[in-house]
Amino acid sequence: MTDVATRVTAVIVSFNSASDLATCLASLRAQDLPDDLALRCLVVDNDSTDDSVTVAASILGPDGVIKLSGNAGYAAALNAGAAAAPDADAILILNADTELAPTTVRELAAAATTPGIGIAVPLIIGPGGHVEYTLRRPPTAWRAWIRALTGRSLCSRWPWVDEALTSYADYTAPTRAAWATGAAMYVTRACWGAVGGFDESWFLYSEETDFALRAAALGYALRLAPRAAVRHVGGPGRVEPDLWTLLVINRVIHHRRYAGPLAGTAMYGAMLANEVLRSPFTPAHRRAALELIRGPQRRRPAVIDRLQAHRPMDVAHV
Rank of each mutant, 00 (worst) to 15 (best):
A90Y: 00
S14P: 01
S14C: 00
S69N: 12
S52V: 01
S19R: 14
T104H: 10
G61S: 02
P86W: 06
R29H: 15
C24R: 01
L123F: 11
P34N: 11
T6E: 06
R40E: 08
L68T: 00
I125A: 12
R7Y: 05
L94I: 08
A38D: 15
T114P: 10
A75C: 04
A84T: 06
A85S: 07
P122D: 07
K67N: 09
I12S: 01
L42M: 06
P62F: 06
V53R: 12
T9Q: 04
A75M: 03
S48R: 01
Y133D: 13
L68F: 04
L108T: 08
A5H: 12
I66V: 05
D36P: 12
A120I: 04
T6V: 14
N16A: 05
A18G: 07
S17I: 00
R7F: 05
V53C: 12
V105A: 07
G118S: 10
C24F: 03
L39C: 07
N71P: 09
T113R: 15
D36T: 13
E132F: 09
A22G: 08
I66L: 04
A83E: 13
P115T: 11
V8L: 02
L92M: 10
D89A: 03
D89E: 07
C24K: 03
D87H: 12
A111H: 08
S14T: 00
L33N: 10
G81E: 02
A30L: 05
A101F: 14
V131E: 11
A22S: 13
A80M: 05
D89G: 08
G73E: 00
G116F: 09
G128H: 13
L39R: 07
V43I: 05
D45M: 05
I59T: 05
L68R: 04
R7D: 05
N95T: 10
V8C: 02
D47V: 06
N95I: 06
A83Q: 14
I117T: 11
T114M: 12
D45E: 10
L37M: 09
D87N: 15
L21H: 01
A18M: 07
L39N: 06
T23A: 15
I12M: 01
A18D: 13
A56I: 02
V13G: 00
A38Y: 07
C41M: 13
T23R: 15
L37H: 11
E132S: 14
V4W: 02
A30I: 07
H130S: 14
R106P: 01
T134F: 07
V13T: 03
A30P: 04
V4H: 04
L21C: 03
V121I: 14
N46V: 03
I59H: 04
A5C: 09
D32H: 15
I66P: 00
T113Q: 15
L37S: 11
G73K: 03
T49R: 13
G128S: 13
L42Q: 03
D50R: 07
L92I: 06
A57I: 02
